[in-house]
Simulated assay, not measured.
Amino acid sequence: MGLCVQCGTRSNPCRCKVVGPTLGFVAMVVTAVVEWPVGAVVYIFKHAKGRRIMGHPATVVYPKVSRCIPI
Rank of each mutant, 00 (worst) to 15 (best):
V19F: 09
K64D: 03
L3G: 04
P21M: 11
V60W: 08
L3D: 08
I53A: 00
E35G: 00
A48T: 13
C68I: 06
I69W: 10
G50R: 03
V5R: 12
Y43C: 05
A40G: 07
C16K: 03
G2I: 07
G55S: 14
V34N: 02
N12D: 00
V61A: 05
T9W: 02
V60G: 00
A27G: 07
T22P: 00
C4W: 08
T31A: 13
A32G: 07
P13E: 00
P21S: 10
R10D: 14
M1Y: 05
C14V: 13
I71N: 11
W36Q: 07
S11I: 02
V33H: 12
V61Y: 05
M28Y: 06
G20R: 01
A32Q: 13
S66V: 06
V5Q: 05
C16I: 08
R67P: 01
R15Q: 07
V41T: 09
R51W: 10
V19K: 12
W36S: 02
V38P: 07
C16V: 10
G55N: 15
G20T: 02
R51S: 09
P70Q: 14
A58D: 05
Y43G: 02
F45T: 06
K46G: 03
V33D: 02
L3F: 04
R52C: 10
T22W: 05
M28P: 01
P57C: 10
V5P: 00
V29K: 03
S66R: 04
V41L: 13
K64W: 07
T31W: 06
G8C: 04
C14Y: 13
M1T: 09
G2K: 11
G2F: 09
G2L: 08
V30H: 00
R67F: 09
G55Q: 14
E35F: 15
K17M: 09
A58N: 05
R15K: 08
C14L: 11
C16T: 14
G55C: 14
P13L: 02
M28A: 15
K49Q: 13
H47Y: 05
R67L: 10
L3N: 04
I53C: 00
A40T: 11
V38R: 03
V26G: 04
V61T: 15
S11Q: 08
V61E: 02
K46I: 12
M1A: 12
V61M: 07
G8P: 04
